[in-house]
Design a binder for these strands. Structure first.
Lengths: 180, 180
DNA sequence: ACCTGAACACCGTTCAAGT
DNA sequence: ACCTGAACACCGTTCAAGT
């Protein structure tokens, strides 16, 4: 609503872009470096992103949104557990290219503050699980947080082993979700 | 085996003791604080423990050893998957009191350098899995590293939810290890 | 309103000087 | 041989001063 916010918005974008570029190469974000790369003062970074997680959430919002939006179509076309598998395969695909996506998902698990991102992820996974329960394919007790915590294992899979180990881990999780 | 090492050994013990005390209350170790609490200079800490992981490994060696040593008796008395479950229950018991035990296990997963600790944990878990495979109770592809990575989920379970969620997560892992 | 960047705090790590 | 602790480096965070 106010007039002079275009410069602020531009700064914000440049910060996110710088952070994205940084994460493509170095795994962990140094805030000083991001500010410098974005050509802004550190205070500006803090003004836009009070915590590192806020920044990470913004960087991966796009990927997250795509993941969340992929749920409904999958559920429409497949039985629940198959939909879950398909969704996780998509997650693995993203994560193979951008390991940071897993970091973002892990951040969801820590956060007390339910960011929009986390909330939507939690809801999307929750929906998959609910449908699975209704179909008798998923055990009653589990919730989305359980799955998110288990998926955290993926963020510690060494790059070199990714393809084999990540799929194996997902297979164990999915089969473990089944009722006994 | 030279003469003057009793003071060094005493220092080492005091460092470990101070670290243990610190971990009982504060989750993350500040090396400066540990050195101060132990009454030694920072250099002394580094002399004895070149990395933080070396220190953690020493702090939890006792618990780790007990865990590892518990495997053989369990395997003698139970079918493999039941032995694995029993072993994990024991792990949950330790971890409930000392959350840091999980951190130590997680450290195993990162480390490239195979410490004794890690090696023994890996072997113990590997043995449980091998027996399980031989009995047809565990799927062939999984290895100890998979399980260690999955167990890492436990170190991110909030204290308040521990009892319910930790057991649920372990149940999912164990069932997921079964062949389909 | 928004920005800058010096400054502070914190903490891991090193190393010259001591015994 | 072993120890001390000042000093350095690094990085997250704040804030007085600017526009």
């Amino acid at each position: 609503m106010p007039a002079r916010r275009s410069d602020a918005a531009a700064n914000r974008d440049r910060i996110v872009e710088a952070a994205r570029a940084e994460l493509d190469t170095s795994d962990d974000l140094k805030l000083h470096a991001v500010a410098k790369a974005a050509g802004v003062g550190q205070g500006t970074l803090y003004r836009h992103f009070p915590t590192r997680e806020h920044l990470l959430a913004e960087v991966y919002r796009h990927e997250m949104t795509q993941l969340v939006d992929a749920v409904a179509p999958l559920l429409a076309e497949h039985p629940p557990l198959r939909a879950l598998t398909g969704w996780l395969e998509r997650l693995l695909g993203y994560a193979r290219v951008k390991r940071g996506v897993m970091a973002a998902i892990e951040a969801s698990a820590w956060q007390d503050l339910y960011t929009d991102q986390h909330h939507r992820l939690d809801e999307a996974l929750g929906m998959l699980l609910e449908r699975g329960k209704a179909a008798g394919e998923v055990r009653e007790e589990v919730d989305a947080a359980d799955v998110i915590l288990l998926l955290g294992a993926l963020s510690r899979v060494p790059e070199a082993e990714w393809d084999a180990r990540a799929h194996r881990i997902v297979a164990v999780i999915v089969d473990g979700l089944r009722p006994r």
